[in-house]
Each structure stands twice: as C-alpha cells, then as structure tokens.
Design a protein around this nucleic acid. Structure first.
Lengths: 141, 141
DNA sequence: TGCTAAACGATAATCATTGTCAAAAAGGGT
DNA sequence: ACCCTTTTTGACAATGATTATCGTTTAGCA
C-alpha cells in the first residue's frame, strides 16, 4: 500500500508555500536550506507521485520540469510570469471546446492539450521598465 | 555574415521530407543513414538556427525537443498524433484572442503562449482498436 | 588564388533526471 | 510494545539529451 512519510509531506508543504512554479532541484535546495535532510531523488519521486494523483501541476520549460501546487481541483491552465514565476490559474472553457472540436474535425481521438500563457506580470513589467534586470526562471518567489 | 553550407541545407531538406516532428538525434541518424557525414553538433546548431529564423517549429515532449518544417509562414499551432507523429497545422484565432485577453486582464505584458493538441490520428486509432501496439514517439513517419 | 571569419566535427563536459541497492521505517498483525 | 514484510529512502552511479571546446575546414569576397 502507499505509505505516508514525512518526506512526501515535506515536499507537499514546501510546494504549497511557494507562489510560482519551481524545479525539483530548487525545491530540494530550499528544503535543505530549511534544515531538512531529504534526498534529491526522493524529491523527484515525491513530485512524480504528487503529479500522478493530480495534487500538483507540472509544465516543461527550457527542458526542465517545473511544479506547482494546485489550488483548483478541476482542469485548468496557467498564466505564468516568465521572470518571477508568479502564476495565475485560469479556466479556459472556450479553449477546451476548441481543442475538442479541432481534434474531432481531423479524426483524432483521445485528445488532450497543452495550453500555457507566459508573460511579464505587472510587477515585473514595472521592474523591467525601471531598468531592472530579469532574473532566471525556476527561482522561488 | 551568415553562410550557406551544404550541412544547413541538408538539415532543411531532411526536415522538409519528414511528415511529423522529429528529434535532433533521429534526424541526425537519418542523415547518416542516407550517406551524409554531417556531425551531430552541426544538426543541433542548424536546427537552433532554423528555429530562430522561423523556418521550423519546435516543441518539447518528454524533455526532448522535436522539430518540424513549417509550411505556413504565419503563426499557427499543431495537432499531433502522439503515436506516429503525424502533424496537422491549425490556426486558432479564437485562442490567440483569448490568450491576449487573459494576459491583459491580469496585467501581464509581452505575452506569448504554448498551445498544442495531442491525440491519436485516425489511422493510429484504427490500429489501436485492432490491437496494434503503439510505437514510441520521436520516430519518423 | 588568398584571406579571414564563420561553420564544422569529434569529443569532452554539463545538467537534469532516473536506476541501483543496502539501510531505514511505515503499517499491520501478534 | 514488538516483530515482520514491504515500501521508501538516500547516496551515488548511470543515462541521455544538449552544449562547450578547439583545432580544422571552408564559404564569401577581394
């Protein structure tokens, strides 16, 4: 059976306490920085497991996977700041319908879709306008 | 200045002669199989360069980048068979507008988006129904 | 034809992710 | 509370795609 370990709980908690999407590596660093002795492989395993159960969302950027705790239990998409990682969960019913229809029109079955919107959030837009530097993605907010 | 080499041309040609999305590694194998002496690093460089100029589209799947020659010069999206890689280029004006609007509503600027629909094409759907096996992605069609 | 900077190719290096395996510990039964 | 079985962990090795390095080749032009 599936067991409850403090490690899995620590990953869940750390992810919930994070505003935007983070990489497994960054999440692991943060856990270590806060005194946890959790291993890197375990973080990867926990994230994969949590993704399977639908407790966290994942997306791929620049060839690395980023994770975030879901606040909505239902299917949704994301509006992500490519500077600070701040994320807004958005529902997109028209897009869902469009995707289904396009797939059907071309005889495709078992359709799913990847829909993400990236941009600069209001704060980072102001920052950039003030001449501020853009930081690397994957950072914690 | 930018130079025209037979290597870059070979990559462009090989990609044009391919139906679906392919990985750099697979494309390289095919070029070698057809007698070319092109190097792997060069294939990567050519693909990156072609993507920059907008001549080819790229998407990320399972942590690897896949490439395909664009037939439309304008912005568009893809409907991709996750079994055989067959791809249909689709325009999605309603989605473009939706993305722009959602970004603006939340104060995001410089918005772009990732929109891809995956599924099983008609042929592969029939194949699967007949008990056929699904092959791995990244293969050439 | 000769020059020079861009492009190439072989290979080493990088980096995220996954596999391995002995040691630790969760859950249930006694 | 203790033991037993099985899952999970953690340190580290292995993998696999992509990128950097660097000496050699070559496209484009005088």
């Amino acid at each position: 059976m599936k067991r409850n370990t403090w490690q899995r709980e620590a990953v869940r908690t750390a992810l919930t306490g994070t505003e935007g999407f983070v990489s497994a590596q960054v999440l692991h660093s943060h856990l270590r920085d806060t005194g946890s002795s959790i291993g890197l492989a375990t973080v990867y395993r926990a994230l994969a497991s949590l993704e399977e159960t639908g407790e966290v969302d994942a997306l791929q950027q620049d060839g690395e996977s980023l994770y975030r705790a879901c606040t909505q239990g239902t299917h949704h998409h994301h509006l992500i700041c490519r500077n600070c990682g701040t994320t807004v969960e958005i529902s997109a019913d028209p897009v869902e319908q469009w995707a289904r229809q396009v797939a059907a029109e071309h005889g495709f079955t078992q359709a799913n879709h990847v829909v993400d919107v990236f941009g600069l959030c209001a704060a980072c837009t102001a920052l950039a306008a003030a001449g501020g530097q853009v930081a690397e993605p994957g950072r914690v907010t």
